[in-house]
C-alpha cells in the first residue's frame, strides 16, 4: 500500500456502527485521516462524539464496521485478532484517562509488561523500563505500587509503559482528564518532549488548552470530523504559557 507508506496512520471512510435499523448509531462516521510520522494530532469534541471510539479503532482495540485503516503500512481492518495483538504490541502505545495500571505490580513492573509480552528478555525489559522511568522523572519511584503514587505520577508511569516497545504511534485518550493542573503540566511537558523527539502522537481530549499544543487540531461531532486546524507547533509554540497551566513561580519563555 504505497499511499499509506507516507503516513503512520491512514484511514479512509472509517465507520463504526452500533445497533441496526432505527437503533443504528454511527459512533464514527465516514472518517478520513492521515497522521504523518512525528506529527501530533489532537482530536476534540463533546462527550459522546466518538473520539474514544475513533482512538480504539486506530489502535486496533476495536474493529471498524467499514472503511479502510492502515497502521505503519499494515492494513488493520483486514487483520485477524493475532495480527491486531501483534500490531498493538509492536506499533502502538496506549495512554488511558484512568491510567489502567496493574494495581499489584510496581511502577517498573507495569512499564516492562508490554516488553515481556513481546517476548523480550526479562533483563532487557527491565533495563528499558528503568530508563523510561528515569526519563519521565520517576526513577526513584520504580518500586512503588500505583496506590502509592499520585495521579500525575501514575499517568507518567502509563506514558513510560506506552513507550517501552518504541511504538510508531502513541494514542492517548484524555490523558489529563483525571489530573490536577500541576500534574497536567507535568504530563504535557512529557508529551512536548516526545513531540520534539519525533514521536507520533494522537491525543483525544476535550480540553482545548491541551489540544492547542498539537500540530493539528481535529474537531469531531456525532462521529464525523467537522473541522480541522493546522497549528504547527502549538498555538504558543511552547507548553506552559497557556493560561492555567503554569506552575507557581514558573514562566515559560
Amino acid at each position: 500500500m504505497n499511499d499509506a507508506g507516507a503516513s503512520v496512520l491512514r484511514a479512509r471512510g472509517l465507520r463504526k456502527e452500533y445497533g441496526r435499523g432505527e437503533n443504528l448509531v454511527r459512533a464514527v462516521d465516514d472518517v478520513d485521516l492521515d497522521v504523518a510520522s512525528g506529527e501530533t494530532v489532537a482530536v476534540t469534541g463533546p462527550s459522546g462524539c466518538g473520539k474514544s471510539t475513533l482512538l480504539h479503532l486506530l489502535g486496533g482495540l476495536d474493529r471498524p464496521s467499514g472503511g479502510q485503516l492502515w497502521l505503519a503500512g499494515q492494513r488493520l481492518d483486514q487483520m485477524g485478532e493475532r495480527g491486531l495483538a501483534r500490531m498493538r504490541r509492536d506499533c502502538v502505545g496506549f495512554v488511558f484517562q484512568a491510567f489502567h495500571l496493574m494495581d499489584e505490580l510496581t511502577a517498573v513492573e507495569n512499564v516492562e509488561l508490554p516488553a515481556l509480552l513481546a517476548g523480550r528478555s526479562p533483563r532487557a525489559a527491565r533495563r528499558r523500563a528503568t530508563a523510561l522511568l528515569e526519563r519521565v522523572g520517576l526513577g526513584d519511584r520504580a518500586r512503588f505500587l500505583p496506590s502509592a503514587l499520585s495521579g500525575g505520577q501514575r499517568q507518567r508511569v502509563a506514558l513510560a509503559r506506552a513507550l517501552v516497545s518504541e511504538p510508531a504511534v502513541i494514542l492517548a485518550d484524555e490523558p489529563t482528564g483525571n489530573l490536577d493542573s500541576q500534574s497536567t503540566l507535568d504530563v504535557l511537558r512529557l508529551f512536548e518532549k516526545l513531540h520534539a523527539a519525533g514521536q507520533t502522537l494522537v491525543i483525544v481530549t476535550h480540553d482545548s488548552r491541551i489540544a492547542a499544543t498539537a500540530d493539528r487540531l481535529i474537531s469531531m461531532r456525532d462521529g464525523a470530523f467537522v473541522d480541522e486546524t493546522r497549528l504547527t507547533g502549538g498555538t504558543s509554540g511552547s507548553l506552559g504559557a497557556l493560561a492555567g497551566l503554569t506552575g507557581p513561580g514558573e514562566r515559560e519563555g
Binding site: A85, R88, H100
Partner: peptide, 16 residues
C-alpha cells in the same frame, strides 16, 4: 476482566 483486557491492549493475543 480488567487485567485480561489490559493485557490484550498491551499486545497479548486472545489465545495467550
Amino acid at each position: 476482566r480488567r487485567p485480561a483486557a489490559l493485557a490484550r491492549a498491551l499486545g497479548a493475543s486472545p489465545r495467550q
